[in-house]
Amino acid sequence: MANSYFQFKQFRVEQDKCAMKVCTDSCVFGAYVNVAQAKRILDIGTGTGLLALMAAQRTNATVDAVEINPDAQIQAKENFSNSPWAAQLQLHAESLQQFAKHSQQHYDLILSNPPFFLSSLKSDNTAKNMAKHTGELLFEDILVFTKQHLIQQGKLCLLLPPPEAAYFAKLASAYKIHLSETVEVYTRIGGKCIRHIQTYAFELSGEPIVKKLFIKDENDVDYTTGFKELLRAYYLFID
């Protein structure tokens, strides 16, 4: 049974009300994304608020977070309020589609770990289905919002499994939103690629940069140096 919370060095994520718990790939994503120059950030489908909190730890930017699920809304709001960055974090308890209808805000950075199983069988857990499958939030919704609300020099960053990442990149090109970098995240050295961290921009700058990140060594025992350096500011067990 998953813990009711996940303790980081500077904040705690309560997760008992959320279908999707804190997981390693989301933490890698939250730690990797470059937030240094951002003044306004949006986290689409914030869930527990994890990505918004990780961003707030490293920047003075205002971080907006959109969430449609009522239980996740309560959880994220509590996690924001109990964090050291409550003044920076703003929860919008509605769908992205609803938010788009009234928001006039433009963003330097848009983050999302969106629903991603395009063709997988759905489980009997409705909350988990909503969190993990495209349905309430379509890839096209993210692209339309990005087209309207991302500044010209801004970045869109996503975490997706490889098949869905390839599909999203093809879809994004039709909106003239271009893939500039992919980080392939592997379970271990010599292991399976489980996620792509994708960075998109309006400007087309040649072939996308491709990097690799391995979570554990080839024996699947110790975390790699790259992983530890990335998560050092967050994970309690990394000194």
Rank of each mutant, 00 (worst) to 15 (best):
M1K: 12
A2H: 11
Y5N: 02
Q10P: 01
Q10I: 06
K17D: 06
A19P: 07
C23Y: 04
C23H: 08
S26W: 09
F29H: 02
G30K: 03
A31K: 03
Y32V: 00
V35R: 09
A36P: 00
R40C: 07
G47Q: 13
T48N: 02
L50T: 08
Q57A: 10
R58Q: 08
N60A: 11
V66T: 06
E67C: 13
P70Y: 14
D71V: 07
Q73P: 01
Q73S: 06
F80V: 01
N82P: 01
W85K: 08
A86F: 02
A87T: 13
Q88N: 14
Q88S: 15
E94I: 02
Q97G: 01
Q98W: 02
F99E: 10
F99M: 11
A100H: 10
Q105T: 15
Q105D: 04
Q105R: 12
Y107G: 03
L109A: 12
L118A: 13
K122M: 13
A127R: 02
A127Q: 15
K128M: 15
N129I: 11
A131I: 09
A131T: 12
G135A: 15
F139A: 10
E140L: 03
E140C: 01
F145S: 02
Q148L: 12
I151R: 14
Q152C: 08
P161D: 08
P162E: 13
F168C: 05
F168Q: 04
A174W: 06
K176P: 00
K176W: 01
K176V: 07
E184M: 05
I189F: 09
R195Y: 06
I197M: 03
T199K: 12
T199I: 12
A201K: 13
F202P: 02
E203G: 00
E207N: 13
I209A: 04
I209T: 11
K212N: 14
F214E: 12
N219F: 14
V221M: 13
Y223N: 05
T224K: 02
F227D: 10
F227M: 13
R232H: 07
I238M: 02
D239L: 05
